[in-house]
Amino acid sequence: MSRAMVLAASMRVLARVLAPVLAVLAVSCGSNEAQPLVVGAAESAESRVLAEIYAQALARTGAAVRIEPGLRGRSEVFAALDAGDIAVTADHNGALLAVLNTGAEAPTSDKVTEELNGSLPQGTITSDPAEGADFEPRVLVTTATAQQRGIESVEQLGAQCPSMVAGVAVVPDLFELPEVAGKISGCEFASTEVFSGPEELHRALLEGRVQAGVLGGPAEFLSGGTEGLKVLADPEDAIRPENPLALVRKGALDDRELEKLNYVAGELTTDELATLVSRVRDEAADPGELARTWLDAHGL
């Protein structure tokens, strides 16, 4: 047999040996490319809505995406980000800062963002905060109290806090707010009473059992509306803002994908997000369908 024939035979044998190996490598590489971005969601209606909005927005960049539900607590969220189990999840900037840096005094959205970026665990970044969607606690008084005491804003309330009993109520199905999130700069109430929900707080205000109310979210979550109540403006940022944002594992998203989340932040508003959350919570609406409709309406 000639040398050329021996070489050709050897090459055929080598090809038969390498073929299975190359096939495995090809499948492996394809599998890595197909690995989806995982968006984590907690059990609250707000988290589920934002997870769907983020996931579908990312999918519209061409990325493969899936949602991982059932996250419990911020410690589990950060562990999942650190382990690479999730790439993205939603939260509030003010609450995150309160958890990560208990001594932070940042009052404005810009300051919260600045201090939050310096407090995040290594390997974690955020999208822009949705400054048009502020879920900070709202301070309520009756319209009669507002007129009698000349109160239009949270700042004007401050000097009168020592003579007032305040009621406090969380809003179900929103992100959990640390106690410091409801702190009102320059205001120390005579005492506070905790109520089971927004409706009970509303009733206590109208009945005069408390003179002020601190609701753990926008007034849109008062199912009976704000009739008889005054929602105090907060132009001086006496209460720390609670803007939704995306927590992102560093390196998990490319520039286009991160930019997409920033576009989402620029379109979110308080009333629209509150409506979406209320529909999921109160009507058992599908958060995926709501997210799709919202993204379409905003050209995202």
Results as ranks from 00 to 15, higher is better:
residue 1 M to Y: 12
residue 4 A to Q: 10
residue 6 V to C: 05
residue 6 V to Q: 12
residue 12 R to D: 01
residue 12 R to E: 01
residue 25 L to F: 10
residue 29 C to V: 12
residue 50 L to Q: 06
residue 55 A to M: 09
residue 56 Q to E: 15
residue 57 A to T: 10
residue 61 T to P: 10
residue 66 R to L: 14
residue 70 G to M: 01
residue 75 S to H: 01
residue 77 V to I: 10
residue 78 F to D: 06
residue 81 L to P: 05
residue 90 A to P: 00
residue 94 G to P: 09
residue 101 N to Q: 04
residue 105 E to Q: 14
residue 107 P to K: 09
residue 107 P to A: 07
residue 123 G to W: 12
residue 127 S to N: 10
residue 127 S to Q: 08
residue 133 A to Y: 09
residue 134 D to R: 01
residue 134 D to N: 14
residue 136 E to D: 03
residue 139 V to H: 13
residue 141 V to E: 08
residue 144 A to H: 11
residue 147 Q to V: 05
residue 147 Q to S: 14
residue 154 V to M: 08
residue 163 S to Q: 15
residue 169 A to Y: 12
residue 169 A to E: 14
residue 170 V to C: 03
residue 179 E to H: 01
residue 187 C to S: 04
residue 188 E to I: 12
residue 198 P to E: 08
residue 199 E to Y: 13
residue 199 E to N: 07
residue 202 H to D: 09
residue 207 E to K: 05
residue 209 R to S: 11
residue 214 V to M: 12
residue 215 L to Y: 11
residue 215 L to Q: 10
residue 218 P to L: 07
residue 218 P to I: 00
residue 219 A to M: 05
residue 225 G to L: 04
residue 227 E to I: 02
residue 230 K to R: 15
residue 232 L to D: 06
residue 233 A to F: 03
residue 240 R to V: 06
residue 244 P to K: 04
residue 246 A to Y: 07
residue 250 K to H: 11
residue 251 G to Q: 11
residue 252 A to I: 01
residue 254 D to S: 02
residue 256 R to C: 00
residue 260 K to L: 09
residue 265 A to D: 08
residue 267 E to Q: 15
residue 267 E to V: 11
residue 268 L to P: 14
residue 269 T to E: 09
residue 278 S to L: 11
residue 282 D to F: 14
residue 284 A to Y: 10
residue 289 E to F: 03
residue 292 R to K: 09
residue 296 D to H: 03
residue 298 H to C: 02
